[in-house]
């Protein structure tokens, strides 16, 4: 088997309810090393919930999530270790406002991986360089624009050396002129071989960078395929309807 075929995430019959509301109704999916998978679909369809089940921010009500062959268990003490290998980027950035840009990046490697402070800071500076933020290292996040905060959030996750990165609508909260810079950073990551799962409404971006696209609607993966298959020749009427509205 080639390296390309190494399984990173496997989801088996995943179900999640919020009270009486069935949000995920049995999702099966395999994500391989180096893949870039985009998730599209109507609002409220369960995209975020699916993504958040992949690192147990939401605890599934049924089914299984395997990360690198091991089942994730919300009550297991190993969960923190697994989460270190699963980076996540949120719609609203969630940078730490009481810490400098540099400390935002170094705090978790220092606390949880016992990386010496100097080494962590050197690495953080290199990461900041890659997203054009090295001159902001000593600033607090309130001095950053939305786009800069999101780039900070991305390198903060990268500092943990994850094996996969999850993005939940990373540009939806940004002013239009900030979107491009953030998408470029994600594209660079994807092209460097990072495994990425991206919930997005940027259809052009999804088509450009994805190996596969999943259409999640009403709690199931209603259709999946290559960008060409999904965007140019959608089979499911629901996909056709959704695309006709957003394209």
């Amino acid at each position: 088997m080639t390296d390309e075929m190494k399984l990173i995430i496997e989801v088996v019959d995943l179900q999640k309810n919020f009270g009486d509301l069935k949000v995920l109704k049995g999702i099966n999916e395999k994500i391989y090393k180096g893949e870039v998978v985009s998730i599209i679909g109507p609002s409220g369809g369960g995209k975020s919930t699916f993504l958040r089940c992949l690192n147990m921010l939401e605890i599934p009500d049924g089914g299984h999530v395997y990360f690198e062959g091991e089942e994730l268990d919300a009550n297991s003490t190993d969960l923190d270790q697994h989460r270190q290998k699963i980076g996540m980027v949120f719609q609203l950035f969630n940078v730490f406002p009481h810490l400098t840009v540099l400390d935002n990046i170094t705090i978790t490697p220092i606390l949880e991986k016992k990386i010496p402070k100097e080494q962590a800071e050197k690495e953080a500076m290199e990461l900041l360089e890659t997203v054009g933020l090295s001159d902001k290292a000593k600033e607090y996040p309130r001095k950053l624009s939305g786009g800069q905060k999101q780039r900070l959030a991305i390198v903060r996750a990268m500092a943990m050396h994850p094996d996969v990165m999850l993005f939940d609508e990373p540009t939806s909260a940004l002013d239009p002129e900030m979107v491009k810079g953030v998408l470029e950073v994600i594209q660079n990551l994807a092209e460097s071989g990072m495994t990425c799962v991206i919930v997005t409404h940027e259809m052009g971006f999804a088509r450009k960078i994805s190996d596969r696209v999943l259409f999640i609607d009403d709690g199931i993966i209603a259709e999946s395929g290559t960008p060409e298959e999904l965007f140019d020749h959608p089979k499911n009427p629901r996909t056709q309807e959704f695309l006709s509205q957003v394209l």
Partner: peptide
């Protein structure tokens, strides 16, 4: 959520 997702 951000902190826990980092593995803190």
């Amino acid at each position: 959520e951000a902190a826990r997702s980092l593995g803190m």
